[in-house]
């Protein structure tokens, strides 16, 4: 089993953190993982993305030109990465910002209205957790409880415990939206 996901969006949408939490969850679930950020000039404004590979064997390439999955938080990300997703792959797309359908018929596409769901969970900034919750449900790659624990571990390490409950709600909202 090996899955690879590109998580892409605008800077500020939390795609880098969502990838880290997924990688942490994969590790806590006993998988081999790599997390690779785009660290070029695009990080300084504009679009951002990261690639997470989760595998039950040691990971070879951390860079992926044919991912099994995509989380697209904005239209430029869907435009850029939709064509390279492997057949039978999963695309989770941000319905709040993307006004076109997925053109591929050989992938599993899920549109999630992340903005209202994040706001209901307590903060518009939690759109990344809504999308991650949806992705975890759509792929079954790791149990949602492990993702919640990984998120809590990361926020605790960063001294941000007070946001754990809100982010749990956001993960659940995304999970239940699929």
């Amino acid at each position: 089993m090996e899955r690879s996901v590109i998580i892409a969006g605008f800077g500020g949408q939390g795609v880098i953190l969502a990838g880290k939490i997924l990688a942490q969850a994969g590790m806590e679930h006993g998988l081999e993982v790599t997390w690779l950020p785009s660290y070029g000039p695009e990080m300084r404004g504009g679009t951002a993305n990261c690639t997470v590979v989760l595998s039950d064997a040691p990971v070879g390439s951390p860079i992926v030109d044919a991912p099994t999955d995509l989380i697209a938080m904005n239209l430029p990300s869907l435009d850029k990465f939709e064509p390279i997703v492997l057949p039978d792959g999963t695309i989770v797309a941000n319905k709040s910002l993307i006004d076109r359908p997925v053109q591929r018929s050989d992938v599993h596409a899920h549109f999630v209205d992340v903005h209202p769901l994040a706001e209901q969970a307590g903060s518009a900034r939690a759109i990344n957790m809504v999308a991650l919750g949806a992705y975890v449900k759509a792929t079954g790659i790791v149990p949602i409880d492990v993702v919640k624990r990984a998120m809590a571990d990361m926020l605790t390490a960063g001294g941000k415990e007070k946001f754990i409950a809100m982010n749990e709600k956001a993960l659940d909202a995304g999970y239940n939206a699929i």
């Binding site: 990688a23 993982v33 790599t34 690779l36 860079i63």
Partner: peptide
């Protein structure tokens, strides 16, 4: 290289 410096792994 910069990729190894920037990437995360267990």
């Amino acid at each position: 290289d910069g990729m190894l410096g920037q990437m995360m792994e267990p």
